[in-house]
Design a protein around this nucleic acid. Sequence first.
DNA 1: TGATAAAATGTAAGCGCTTACATTGCCCTC
DNA 2: GAGGGCAATGTAAGCGCTTACATTTTATCA
Lengths: 344, 344
Amino acid sequence: MSQNEVEKSVPTLADVASLANVSTATVSRCLNSPDRVGKDTRERVMKAVNELGYAPNFGAQALAARQTNTIGAVIPTMENAVFARGLQAFQEELGRHGKTLLLASSAYDAELEEQQIRALVARGADALLLIGYDREPEIYRFLEKRGVPTLIAWSFNPAETRTAVGFDNRAAMRALARDVIAQGHRNIACITAPTRSNDRARGRVEGIRDAKVEAGQDPAEVMIVETPYGIGTGEEAFRQVMAQAPDTTAIMCVNDVLAVGALRAARALGLRVPEDISVTGFDDIEIAALADPELTTVHVPHREMGRRAAQRLIEVLQDNVMGQSKELPTEIRMRQSLGPARKA
Amino acid sequence: MSQNEVEKSVPTLADVASLANVSTATVSRCLNSPDRVGKDTRERVMKAVNELGYAPNFGAQALAARQTNTIGAVIPTMENAVFARGLQAFQEELGRHGKTLLLASSAYDAELEEQQIRALVARGADALLLIGYDREPEIYRFLEKRGVPTLIAWSFNPAETRTAVGFDNRAAMRALARDVIAQGHRNIACITAPTRSNDRARGRVEGIRDAKVEAGQDPAEVMIVETPYGIGTGEEAFRQVMAQAPDTTAIMCVNDVLAVGALRAARALGLRVPEDISVTGFDDIEIAALADPELTTVHVPHREMGRRAAQRLIEVLQDNVMGQSKELPTEIRMRQSLGPARKA
DNA sequence: TGATAAAATGTAAGCGCTTACATTGCCCTC
DNA sequence: GAGGGCAATGTAAGCGCTTACATTTTATCA
């Protein structure tokens, strides 16, 4: 399995043991719990280890110790800055605790996600990070049966029982929608990513409806356009909204990327933002503040989420018990793309 | 190592074997080379597998088969869209071939990178993807000794012997610099990421100098400002350039993020781009086309690079021999941020 | 100083799988 | 219908490590 011809040279525990003139058990202890070994023995062993350039065989270690020190994560895609950012923090925190990240992606496809989850478990992931709650119950059963602790991130829903480290998508969007309505908007459209098996997007859409209801308006008035993730698709969706519902005065997008697309389409159509139409995003990734006009959006602490998720998972591996769910706060970033509704 | 109390229930090969009334060898063959087993036996075994919900134990498999089907990658950071994009394609291709990605990041720190490389090897990575050539020879020696095939990406340098799948950073930047010079620019500044142990950034800077030389100008005229990756740092570097060398008419940045920072600083300083000053980037990530003015930059086929890198690594694992290096072409994306030099 | 406890080390039994080699049974061929 | 060849299956020897338990050594204390 390698192009190395000197294969035989890879030293094993036994080699170290015989060089240091001790048993393999002692060498193993030296490496794993040095304090349980006498000082001079330890030094002798360590010297042998260095001399031989010994490093443990992963498979053997995993087999004997029944753990791999490896944690899996299945995300929709790294190309979404939101996940890239969160995962970066996640991985850094894992690294700090001697754990390694096994990464897979689902391209927002439920079936592919299931495959990837199974693949990571098969690769010996000690625990798993998954995005959002939506998932076939069968998968959760599988995970339970295999005894793989699983943490949900990017979502927090008090109504769900699984442990999560995330934020309340619905409440966050509701808060933003309140502000939109407060600016006099009534004809609101929503550009969303597909909501099927995506409780995050669905929650955000619901949040808008919630705010409508609170304001005594009919939630069914909200025009919903579903489209895949992307700037181009956001543009297209914007055109569609304006064609079908020209009265629309505010377009709330479930993420910044779609919103930036909307912004571009607005400009192309000769519409001023926010004078003619308001646009909002969600996530607060870099382009939100870079856009012109700057995008009003919901700030999500992605890095902190990743970091905390890692901590939870490390804890559960240590203490054998998963901590409580943790809700992280989001914040509305009021910028230029939201303004008062134009007069009818 | 898990909160599961029904631990004993995880079935082994032997369980499947006895249920199906065959030997463990047959079960193993059913799973790994089904064609070497009779049809009805195979069906019986598969039925048992499903019935028990059997899945192989990773450690045991790795130990016995001497390979983990796991490929490691150490990148600077996922937060850089360039790597996120390339890695996404890399992971997808790996997945297509039944390999899993072990991911670590170095934060552009050589020492941390070394640690991560060792960690991934210790975690049983069958092969490794590394970014750029620059690295202590000791690390390469270690990798060789351990027999871990290693591929370099994001760089291609004909002068280097290691196998790489990447592009010629120096030539690409040289080409862009030629265009800049052709627009009458002579007082060129370069904002670069730290060049220490980063042959990509260094190559790009060299590329600018090359073009100066070709044009009969003094390469030492190029003002170089080194700064960490980031929009904010790009802004700051721009101010520094303008403060120290107000005659500068073109600022070439080694990546788009720094360039976007430069663009912002220019605007803040009341400088028009490209009338008062030209700015160029490198990578052609999303924000390049979104920036205002749109950024002239070098397009790099990140996805294809990731995909091809995966293929190379899969090949080497199969055939035991690493293919040739592959140079991918880059393209100049001429947009609005580069214009003729202003008159002195 | 001898009994007893504690620390250090060794012994050896797995962990669950792959695979070289051995065995069995069947189909051809002449 | 005996012998050869091949496909299907079984046997069992590891793979390199961890760890329960046994043994030996050293420290402690009356």
